[in-house]
Every structure is written in C-alpha cells, then in structure tokens.
C-alpha cells in the first residue's frame, strides 16, 4: 500500500499503520468497560468508525474500498441493528440483568461504527462524482 500514489505522504502512511490498530482497540475498550467507567456503546462505536475514517484519509479511498466495500459495511450495520432489536424485544419479558446490557452495548457499537463509516464513504464518493460531473 505504501507505493500507492494516492493518499498522503509516506510518513503519514507509516504512522497510520502503527496507530490504526491502537485506535480500534481503544474503541473496543470504551465499549466493554462502559458499565464501570465513563464510556458507552455510542462513543465506542464512533471511535471505531473514526479509526476506519483515519485509514481512508491517509491511504486514499480506493485502497480502502478494495479491503472494505460499501455493501459489506451496510450489511454489518444492518446486522447490528437487527441484533439490537432482538435484544431489546427479548428484554420485554426478562428482568433487568447484566448480560443484556453488555450485549446491547456491543450491538449498538457495531451499528454506529459501521453506519457512520458508510455515511462518510458515501459522502466522499458523492463529492468525487459531482466534481467529475462539474468538469464535464
């Protein structure tokens, strides 16, 4: 990926490859410890989406779209939404318990991370398309 002319300079790409995994792990950490410390499913999901956006900004959109396509991200978002719906409806009949909170946190984080990444990808692609259309 380093020889790809699109994206930013070599220094930014090298630093990005070192830090993206750490940011993703920090997102997981915010999600999983939200019952004892500040955090939550939504904030963790946004951090995960930001790590992917970081990849797009550093390497250019084409290099990332080869690995993670838009359709896959939409599928992931829908899976998260369906999982959260099932958990929430199943908790109509059960009592308050800890496992339900943890599972719904993870489902929300999946949905938010994938969904906001899809929004960013869509806007970037749309800006590129419309710029091409204006030149013609």
């Amino acid at each position: 990926m380093t020889n790809n002319p699109s994206g930013m300079s070599l220094i930014v790409k090298t630093i990005t490859r070192l830090t993206v995994g750490l940011i993703l792990i920090y997102g997981f950490y915010i999600v999983l410890q939200s019952h004892i410390a500040p955090g939550g499913g939504f904030a963790g999901g946004v951090v995960m989406a930001l790590s992917l956006i970081h990849l797009v900004l550093a390497f250019g959109r084409d290099a990332v779209l080869k690995k993670i396509s838009q359709i896959n991200s939409v599928c992931l978002m829908s899976c998260g939404a369906i999982a959260f719906l099932v958990i929430a409806l199943s908790r109509l009949v059960t009592k308050n318990h800890f496992t339900g909170v943890l599972l719904s946190d993870i489902a929300i984080a999946t949905m938010v991370g994938a969904g906001l990444f899809v929004v960013f990808l869509t806007l970037v692609l749309f800006i590129k398309e419309s710029a091409k259309g204006n030149k013609q």
């Binding site: 019952h35 500040p38 308050n96 909170v101 946190d105 929300i108």
Partner: peptide, 19 residues
C-alpha cells in the same frame, strides 16, 4: 443489573426503549 455507571444503567437498563 449490577452496573456501577448510573448513566449507562439508565440508558440501557431502566429506560432501554429510549435507546
């Protein structure tokens, strides 16, 4: 529910349909 963080307890336990 055993949650120490009360804001999480409110959003995901007591008022889960808000979420």
């Amino acid at each position: 529910g055993g949650l120490a963080n009360i804001v999480t307890a409110i959003t995901l336990n007591f008022r889960r349909f808000d979420a």
